[in-house]
Write a protein that binds this DNA or RNA. Structure first.
Length: 881
DNA sequence: GGCATCACG
DNA sequence: ACGTACGTGATGCCG
């Protein structure tokens, strides 16, 4: 009989950590949790003799801002660093034992365990769950038992159905009802206030479930009846929260967790590292099977030398080929080409650049629209090859874009990641082949050729898999009609670049440096000491210790000196505003003057940014090296940086076209709220209109403060409103913020309904979508952790809005580019800044372009409210305002 | 390499 | 009962 052992990794590590003294090995590494965990592991292996085994961990969301830290400070103690640093070591031990371990973004370890226990049972296996967490009792069945650790980790109590009954007189399925009623402070589950374990058990013994208790609430008496009535919804929600989710998409099956015994050598080696002497003795001299080395798919690669390239001319005509381009640096505007790899799935070619550069058949192949190629990062491919004078056409598929659309939140879309995710295979990462940091170098040509051939081959095999997934998820049109053509538009924009007036930038820099010096002198004077103003730590010392200003906010590492704090302190000491000003000037110097100077191509005097099309979770673009999407505008001093962005031809103009209130218009469309739609149909000033509704005054009584506050409310709505967030932003009490929000929703009930609907939908489907069916998964919307769940809920509200706005401008870009080619204008699209497009335009095309840009942008997609575009022109980006 | 800060939409 | 606005990228400091 097969037996699956499932270990709750975090729970056991946690128990082990607190059960054992804080051991340290000779190198100063804490090892107590690793030691305890390993003890437990070996005991389980010996006593249970599992045929299958898996250790589940909670996935830490790295991008989850600082909320993790702050929240853990609240209800439970933060995971001590001495423990979290041991978790990777535990994983290493598991690897040495050949035991599979797993974590899934947005799911907790118990969800993974529940999923596997359920599927083991369906396959007729027995399962044993090892944990320190009573919640998992709900998973017990005839075939699933629970080993609950007590005192330490090597002793435990075994729970089957009988044992659960004996302890609570409940079935395992009722454990969630128990939680629903009594709650759980450590998991932020509220339950019914005033109902503890005793009352909850009493209620369940009488009624059986939360639902029954609520149905028959009238049979209760006194205070209890009131409490149950009042908090009924909350109890239902609490039960939901306590319910372990048993359908986690794992990407593997129970069979894949087979445990084959461990390699003594590997285990001994890690025990030696950790200095586990007694455990080393315990594994003794007995030999066990060796681990299997990772097998790579065999590929045979032909290296095409210049003299024999004509032999391969026919191959280029053969069939649908994948195309891989290898370059030497991250920034492809400066990178050198190493070579190309091509594959038809059977035959793989490596074409070193020395061969490729003068191969006419290859040149024709690349340029021919009719010769379809499947590629990875077609934008990069096109930029790099066009820089070398090659035309590139016929890129009809892009695995990078497909992978991004399939899951835009995924952090890695490297080919190696995709092979792992989509084909259960493995491809050596570039880091493994090239090394990293200072050690980075090219391997010998044979090894290089094999590596690249593997990539081309993998790309060829990925093509149909990704196409199918894109089709299944309804994103074919988004991929083929928007993202793929957009990538080629972006390639053109990047290649063309933006002209920068270097002398003007240098002058601005000089001016700013003088200001910075003057401010530095004044700050030293006022502080009575010289210090590094750029160091938040030293600055905090001066402000809070030396000058005795009150501490209004702390950061993880010390006292906060952020602008919002300093603004509140400005009235108390004149040094504060000098510091704020200094910061502003320094930002301009370092990021915008010096930063931009470094990016000017000395040959052309232009800046070539890269638009990243596969980074954001919402579908927006981002821009790097340099980021041209965050050039200052809000403050005049910074705005002057825009004076250096000029047309590349004498006498041309910069034309800027921006969508007016695109996100709120999208919201009006998506929600269908009549009042909001009317406001836009009548082309009202939306913040004034909101102020009228929220403050209940006629238009002529809206003060500038009211409008400012209403504007913040509108932002809040787009971001997924919370009273706390709004109160922080406006610096007003939370109660007042809550009032604003309440009045907003009463004025725009359709918006409220929409927000509720989209959150509900996300909860049901696990994802939200945009107007063009772009998808974003939000697994954490089902999290039992309040913070994670709330974050996911706000994201569910924001993503369709931000993402649909991104869809709209992307559509406009593709159509505009086409239209501009068709009309053979000289004008060029230069930049996109989320709701704005920047062009350079010859004088004689100015009127045509204004009208073309406006009409294409406004008609990009049909909405139930009009889209409005404002257009400005000028000699520089600064003047196009 | 993580953190704090700040530039943009 | 809980603590937060949504999405990015670049910089300087500091361990």
């Amino acid at each position: 009989m097969d037996k699956l052992v499932l270990i709750d990794g975090n729970s056991i590590a946690f128990r082990a950590f607190y059960a054992l003294p804080l051991l340290t090995n000779g190198k100063g590494v804490h090892t107590n949790a690793v030691y305890g965990f390993t003890m437990m592991l070996m005991k389980v292996l010996e006593e249970e003799k599992p045929t299958h085994m898996l250790v589940a961990f909670d996935a830490g969301r790295i991008t989850f801002r600082h909320s993790d830290y702050q929240e853990y400070k609240g209800t439970r103690a933060q995971t001590p660093a001495e423990l979290s640093e041991q978790l990777p070591l535990i994983r290493e031990v598991l690897d040495a034992f050949g035991i599979r371990h797993f974590e899934a973004e947005g799911y907790e370890a118990d969800d993974i365990i529940g999923t596997l226990a359920k599927s083991a049972e369906e396959k007729g296996m027995n399962a044993l769950i090892v944990t320190g967490d009573k919640d998992l009792l709900q998973l017990v069945t005839d075939r699933v038992t629970l080993l609950l650790t007590r005192k330490g980790v090597t002793e435990g109590e075994r729970y089957d159905r009988e044992a659960v009954w004996k302890k609570y007189q409940l079935t395992p399925a009722q454990i969630v009802d128990l939680k629903g009623l009594m709650g759980d402070a450590s998991d932020n589950i509220p339950g019914i206030p005033g109902v503890g374990e005793k009352t909850a058990l009493k209620l369940l013994h009488r009624f059986g479930s939360v639902e029954e208790v609520l149905d028959k609430v009238d049979e209760l008496t006194g205070k209890l009846r009131e409490r149950v009535k009042e908090h009924g919804r909350q109890a239902r929600m609490s039960k939901d929260l306590a319910t372990i989710y048993c359908d986690v998409p794992l990407g593997f099956s129970v069979e894949d967790t087979r445990y084959e015994g461990y390699d003594r050598g590997r285990v001994a080696s890690i025990f030696e590292q950790l200095e586990f002497k007694s455990l080393l003795e315990r594994i003794g001299g007995e030999e066990s099977g060796t681990g299997t080395p990772r097998k790579l798919r065999e590929v045979e690669v032909h290296i095409v030398e210049p003299e024999d390239r004509d032999r391969w001319n026919d191959f280029l005509e053969s069939s649908f080929l994948s195309l891989w381009l290898e370059t030497d640096g991250e920034n492809y505007h400066r990178a050198e080409i190493i070579g190309l790899a091509l594959s038809d799935g059977e035959t793989h070619l490596y074409v070193p650049w020395r061969t490729a550069r003068e191969w006419e058949a290859l040149r024709r192949f690349l340029a021919d629209e009719g010769r379809e190629k499947t590629a990875f990062d077609g934008k990069r491919l096109r930029v790099v090859l066009e820089r070398q004078g090659f035309d590139v056409n016929g890129l009809t598929f892009d695995a990078l874009l497909a992978s991004y659309l399939l899951d835009p939140s995924e952090s890695g879309h490297s080919l190696s990641d995709m092979v792992k995710r989509k084909m259960d295979g493995s491809l050596p990462s570039d880091e493994e082949v090239y090394g990293k940091g200072a050690k980075r170098r090219l391997p010998g040509e044979k090894e290089l050729a094999e590596h690249l051939a593997r990539k081309a081959e993998a790309l060829k095999r990925l093509d149909p898999l990704l196409r199918e997934e894109v089709r299944e998820t309804g994103m074919e049109s988004l991929l083929f009609e928007t993202e793929l053509p957009l990538s080629q538009v972006l390639a053109r924009m990047e290649l063309h670049g933006v002209r920068v007036d270097r002398d003007r930038l240098l002058d601005l820099g000089e001016e700013l440096k003088e200001q910075a010096e003057a401010l530095t002198r004044q700050i030293y004077e006022l502080a009575g000491a010289e210090f590094n103003i750029n160091s938040p730590k030293q600055l905090a010392e001066i402000l809070y210790d030396k000058l005795g200003l009150p501490v209004l906010k702390k950061t993880k590492t010390g006292y906060s000196t952020s602008a919002d704090v300093l603004e509140k302190l400005a009235s108390q000491h004149e040094i504060v505003e000098k510091i704020l000003h200094y910061r502003q000037i320094m930002k301009l110097i370092s990021t915008y003057v010096e930063g931009l100077l470094k990016e000017i191509d000395p040959k052309s005097g232009k800046i070539h940014t890269r638009f990243n099309q596969t980074i954001t979770a919402t579908g927006r673009l981002s821009s790097t090296e340099p980021n041209l999407q965050n050039i200052p505008i809000r403050l005049e001093e910074g705005r002057r940086i825009r004076q250096v962005f000029v047309p590349s031809e004498a006498g041309w103009q910069i034309l800027s076209a921006d969508y007016s209130q695109i996100e709120l218009r999208v919201l009006a469309h998506l929600s269908g709220d009549e009042s909001l739609k009317r406001a836009f149909s009548e082309d009202m000033d939306i913040h004034t209109k909101t102020a009228m509704d929220v403050f209940g005054v006629p238009e002529d009584e809206v003060t500038s403060l009211m409008r400012r506050q209403a504007k913040a409310v509108n932002f809040g709505i787009i971001y997924g409103i919370s009273d706390y967030g709004l109160s922080q932003n406006l610096n007003i009490p939370r109660k007042v913020a809550a009032q604003f929000i309440d009045r907003y929703f009463r004025s725009y009930p359709g918006v409220k309904e929409y927000m509720d609907r989209v959150v509900e939908q996300a909860r049901k489907d696990g994802y939200v979508t945009t107007m063009l069916n772009r998808r974003r998964y939000l697994p954490e919307i089902r999290s039992r952790n309040y913070n994670r769940r709330s974050f996911a809920e706000r994201t569910a509200m924001n993503t369709p809005i931000q993402g649909s706005a991104a869809d709209i401008i992307k559509t406009a870009m593709v159509r505009l580019h086409r239209e501009m080619e068709k009309r053979r204008v000289q004008s060029r699209m230069l930049l996109q800044v989320h709701d704005e497009l920047i062009f350079e335009v010859p004088e004689e095309e100015l009127e045509e372009m204004k009208s073309l840009v406006r009409s294409v942008m406004e008609q990009a997609v049909p909405l139930s409210v009009p889209l409005k575009v404002d257009i400005h022109t000028g000699q520089t980006w600064y003047e196009a305002k």
